[in-house]
Every structure is written in structure tokens, then in C-alpha cells.
Amino acid sequence: MGVILGYVATLGVYFFIYNIFAFGLNIQFGYTGILDFTVITFMAIGGYMAGVASLGPEQPGSDIYYVLGLSLPWPVALVIGAAAAGAAGYVLGLIALRRLRSDYLAIVTLAAGSIVYGVIGNANGLFDGFEGLVGVPQPLNGVLKLSPNSYTLFFLGLAGVIMAICWFVAERIYRSPLGRAMRAIREDLDVAEAYGKRTFRVRMTAMVIGCVFVGIGGVLTIWFVTALAPAGWGTSETFVVWAALIVGGRGNNLGAVVGSFLVAVLFNEATRFLPAIPGHPSLISEIRNMCIGGLVILTLWFRPQGAVAERKARFFEIPLRPGALDEAAKSVPAMATSGS
């Protein structure tokens, strides 16, 4: 009973975290059309920065090296992690969001991801290199003194609240004139520009908010696992987030949730608990990655809009000024309602 509960709660936490990742990517790609092929890098930056903000100072003599070590309380660490991811997104945006072909943008993000991966892995003094950070304190764990299972349930609640806030914010942006400008830019950047939209600024806004979201997911990740190392955030992890959004339905936050459940929870996380195949320890992960890649390609072929398609924007209905239609009909009598 306890084991199953703990397992389900763990999957629930991952579900919420992936929701946040997918919301972030949705703001970037689904709303604005930015091809961010290194989503997971911002998760790492957010996670690492929150980690070194909440860890105590580096212990001399221990084998773990890292910067900062500020012993800050967890809410501050959350803000630092989110801000760091947003700042990193801003810097990448300065390079990638200039008016380049969209494939260049994708290349730059991918390249920047490899670079950050290499630097974090090789620079031992930053976040302990390929070993990664360990022993990151969990929010309120010392105060609450709960059993591991109960703490997982508590964490599930915390992640749920943060996820709900992110969802709310993402929806509020979607429905606003800002979200509309983002979608116009996604549909046709040149036209939006010709209509007076400051496309660079709007795309940068989407880029940064998306990265902040992903960074928040990263903070939750490092809290939950209490550790983070480069092996946990390779390119294939970026693809899982992409798969969640494409399969679920880009441009729709409910789709992001559905996709996170289908891809990230059912496929990606649940299979991690399968026993390894003797003689070929990595085969399960290889098959999983192939399936996720295949799922995306099949989705794009059979249901390009994803499981839950983007909704049509609906405005609060206001009645037309009485007589407006008649006037229009009078002004051009012959063809008031015909098209061409």
C-alpha cells in the first residue's frame, strides 16, 4: 500500500513538473513559434542555481565542489532558479531571436545547449561537473519531520500548487492581446511586424517567460530528487518535452497537460521502473527514446494538431450596433454578403 502510494505520488510529481516544462515550451513554440531545441538546459540552470542557493557553503575536504552555497530559504532559491533560467533565456534570445531563418534559431539553441552541457560538465568548480550536485535540501523537510512517503505527498501538493499557478499565468497570457500578438507572430512574423508589433520584444518576452517556467520546473526537480547531474538532462530530455507538447496539442495548455501525461508519465517515467534486460542494461531506455521519437512523427502525420487541438479564440459576444449590417448592405447594395 505505502509503496504503491509513494510510486503514484512520485509519478504525480513528475507529471506536474512536466506540465510546467510543457507550458513553458508552449509559450515559446505553441504561442510564438520559437523553435527552442534546448528546453532542458533551462531546467538545469534553474535547478542548479536553486541548488547552490539553498546548499550550505562548500565543505573543504569533501569531494563536492560548487559555487555560492548560500544556505538561502527555499522560496528565495525558487526565485533565484527561475530568474537565472530567465536570464539565460534572455542571453540566448539576444543571439537567436534576431531576424534569422527559423532553422538558424533551432541550430543556435541546439548548439548553445551542447555548449552549456559541456561547460557545466567540465567545469568542476561550478556545479561539481559530471558528478553533479547532491544533498540539496528539500523545502520544509527539516521542519515537517514527515516520513518519506508523507513528504512525497506533501511535495505533490507543493508541486501541484506551483503547477496551477503556472497554468493560470500561461492561460492569462494566451487570452490577452499580448498572447494574440504572439500568435500573430507565430503565423507570420513579417506581417505582424508590418502592423506595428515589436516582434523582437514580443518574441523575447515569450522566450524569457518560457525559460522561467522551465527553470521553475528545474527547481522542483532538484528539490524532489535532491540531486542533479548532466546525465539527467541530455538532448533526449528536451525531446520528451517537445513530444509532450506535440502529442498533446501545441497552442493549448490543456493539450500540454494531456501530452505530459501520455508521454512524460506513461512513457518516460513509468518505464524507468521496469527491470533492466540482462546483458543489455540500456536497451529499455533506447527503445523508449525510439518510441517517443516515433510517436512525435506519427502524431505529426496523423494528427498534426495533437490530441487536444488549439481552441478557436472566443470573444465575449457583444451585439453589433443596431443597423450596422443594414448600413453596410446599403452602402454596397449588390453584393453585401457574397464573397468572391
Binding site: 523553435l35 525531446f239 533506447e286 525510439m290 517517443i292 512525435v296 512523427i297 505529426l300
Partner: peptide
């Protein structure tokens, strides 16, 4: 299919093929 989605398809293919090679 627009260029956007072709890029995502090749990105997905890279995941499939690299893991196939490793398998």
C-alpha cells in the same frame, strides 16, 4: 508540411536513429 514541423521530424529522427545505433 511547413519547415517548422520538418525540423521537428528530423529532430525526432535523430533521437530514433541514434538510439537505434546504440541499441
Amino acid at each position: 508540411t511547413s519547415g517548422f514541423f520538418l525540423l521537428i521530424v528530423t529532430f525526432g529522427l535523430s533521437l530514433i536513429l541514434l538510439n537505434l545505433v546504440q541499441a
